[in-house]
């Protein structure tokens, strides 16, 4: 009797084990396509980092990628020294960081104010219309945006250049004069991204518990006081989290903005070159693969450290909002 029972239990256990194994296999088959993609396009290129420490040359006897990498000479940190020996590198690192700081600050102030304003518009239909129009640039590529900018700045026909010619007798040669570009790039970035972050903040504002406002109103707080003492404090966590995450990405730049809006114009490089455009140009235009890899490795390592620090800080503020 007892023997029979244990046998039955064992059989049941085996069946369950079999079923579990089958389930795991099926779930593994679900993650397989993406995993293969990740291995091929994300994990294998990780090995390519060695190129940063080599002088990449095509191995003429059997020029396959792996042979090229293996047979290139080790040069240690020479590529890094080479990049940082030029004054250009200081400029493109400075550009990356400074533009990011300006974009983060302007973006924050504008989108939080716009979100608060939108929330105060009495007619919801009107507010919705504003929101729809403001969100439009988010759907436009930087290539198209560069035509919008060119419509204003074109050296012969641009709206602004013609205006300057008419009223001041001389026009700025925008695509050869680096001076106005910090402003132009900042405005372009605001134009494209503010609608998006406004919507994020607006969603956070609508999520605030209405009873807080009612309680404030009962205590006699005016709407302005409610904004100051209810809305903004309630947004504080979200603001600091988005802010810290943005600072974690401070060594990354929006390639499209810095490549397309200035139309890849050489005389502007001193104010438009960022780490990302340098990495691209070193690879595709000057064909210096080792330097390109070294620059992106530098960017990746610093970026990784920044994100880790940012995440730790966020975790301290609000456990749930951290990335991992």
């Amino acid at each position: 009797m007892d023997e029979k029972k244990t046998k039955a239990i064992a059989l049941k256990g085996r069946r369950k084990k079999h079923k579990d194994r089958k389930k795991t296999l099926i779930l593994l088959s679900m993650v397989a396509p993406t995993s293969i993609w990740l291995i091929l396009l994300r994990y294998i290129p990780l090995f390519g980092i060695v190129i940063a420490f080599k002088n990449y040359k095509v191995y003429t006897k059997a020029p396959t990628l792996i042979n090229n990498v293996i047979h290139s000479k080790w040069v240690g940190f020479k590529n890094f020294f080479f990049i940082f020996a030029t004054t250009d590198s200081l400029k493109f690192i400075r550009n990356t960081v400074c533009y990011n700081l300006v974009f983060i600050l302007c973006g924050l102030i504008l989108s939080v104010s716009f979100a608060i304003m939108l929330n105060e518009i009495t007619h919801k239909f009107v507010a919705k219309t504003y929101q729809t129009l403001m969100f439009f640039p988010y759907f436009i590529s930087w290539v198209v945006a560069s035509y919008f900018v060119a419509a204003l700045l074109d050296p012969s026909n641009g709206l602004i250049t013609r205006f300057q010619l008419e009223h001041f007798g001389a026009a700025t040669d925008f695509y050869n004069n680096p001076k106005p570009w910090p402003v132009i790039l900042t405005l372009s970035s605001i134009w494209k991204n503010t609608g998006y972050s406004t919507i994020l903040y607006l969603a956070a504002i609508t999520g605030i518990d209405t009873s807080l406002y009612e309680a404030a109103a009962i205590d006699g707080a005016t709407k302005w006081q409610q904004i100051k003492y209810v809305t903004i404090p309630n947004l504080r966590t979200m603001i600091s989290i988005l802010l810290i995450m943005d600072i974690g990405k401070i060594f990354n730049s929006d390639f499209g903005l810095f490549y397309n809006i200035p139309q890849n114009s050489g005389p502007l490089f001193s104010v438009t070159q960022t780490i990302d455009t340098y990495v691209y140009r070193a690879l595709m235009q000057t064909n210096n693969i080792s330097n390109s890899t070294a620059a992106s490795l530098f960017q990746n390592v610093i970026g990784f450290i920044c994100i880790m620090i940012a995440n730790t800080i966020v975790k301290k503020i609000d456990e749930d909002s951290s990335l991992f």
Partner: peptide, 25 residues
């Protein structure tokens, strides 16, 4: 598998190695 996907957002090979793997391999 969560980490497997998430790690790639934190660290990568960079443009040049990715480009060469895509194009040549």
């Amino acid at each position: 598998f969560t980490m497997f996907a998430f790690f790639t957002t934190l660290f990568g090979g960079g443009l040049a190695p990715t480009y060469m793997v895509c194009k040549q391999l």
